[in-house]
Design a protein around this nucleic acid. Structure first.
Ligand SMILES: [Mn+2]
Ligand SMILES: [Mn+2]
Ligand SMILES: [Zn+2]
Ligand SMILES: [Zn+2]
Lengths: 144, 144
DNA sequence: AATAAAAATGATAATCATTATCAATATCAA
DNA sequence: TTGATATTGATAATGATTATCATTTTTATT
């Protein structure tokens, strides 16, 4: 099957809701799609302001919420009460290893874990909608 | 090995830090240890006020933080940005199934999942300090 | 191109959970 | 009983996020 490009996803979503693909939104999406890491709103705003320093924080919040709604972004809470965002469209599901010392985030995927999660849900007659699994600890580099 | 009772754990912890086992703290701990579910601060405060309506919210916050420090309580964020607390001392580790409709929380433990988490960490040369896994979805009762 | 309706923006106020502050009170060892 | 010290509750402060609103952009219509 063909992969609809991310830009199209957003366009369609906005059209559907009678919303407009404005210049600030274009900048924010571009910055978000370029970023590889798990960035919080403040970090995104900083990068957005390097393109146009007049774009406000509120618009970054609003736009990131739109990107979550349309399925381009996912929010995670990897550190103390602060959301960070990452691309998810067209990517496989994964979970996170978080170093509490250097704040590095590594991604991993373990099919068996996913399998057993499903099995557990079934046993409890529970329908999983989503799940979050995060392993906190010390990464290799921080162990010296 | 003998199990040191929960009340002793707190006493020792407080003694160690030149802190006092005061009446408000006694009430709060008693209420917490009696409660079976995953209660947030507001809910704990309500129950505490049924014993003594003059005990303040700040003291509940402070005391629950002490209980976490000394290892009697663990905090989880199962719903939108609000911590809830549960007993952990002398209990086995477990993870959570959270129904997003009725907000019921079920506990489960899957040794294989834990095993594979460790394996994953080892592969990444990562030392796990703690982990959080939560499955969100719809429970049996809410499916009718 | 001019116009009018609708949507979006940025500044800022409001919200909500949690923590910090501080004067008044409780605790405890001497 | 006293005096040093820890604790309390009320409340202010904080930090992340959302709501508000006057002004500006965008788009469709003339
Ligand atoms: Mn990720
Ligand atoms: Mn639990
Ligand atoms: Zn590290
Ligand atoms: Zn339910």
């Amino acid at each position: 099957m063909k992969q609809i490009p991310e830009s199209k996803i957003l366009e369609d979503f906005l059209a559907e809701k009678n919303m407009r693909l404005t210049y600030p939104r274009k900048v924010i999406v571009q910055v978000f799609l370029q970023s590889m890491s798990h960035l919080d709103i403040e970090e995104l705003h900083e990068r957005v302001r390097k393109v146009d320093k007049d774009i406000g924080l509120a618009t970054v919040y609003r736009t990131m919420n739109l990107l979550v709604e349309c399925g381009l972004a996912q929010e995670n809470v990897l550190f103390q009460d602060k959301k960070c965002f990452e691309r998810v469209y067209g990517r496989d599901h994964h979970d996170h290893l978080v170093c509490t010392r250097c704040r590095t985030v590594k991604e991993f995927h373990h099919p068996m874990i996913e399998r057993f999660q499903e099995k557990t849900a079934k046993k409890h007659e529970f329908s999983i909608v989503s799940h979050r699994m995060t392993l906190f600890g010390i990464c290799r580099d921080c162990k010296e």
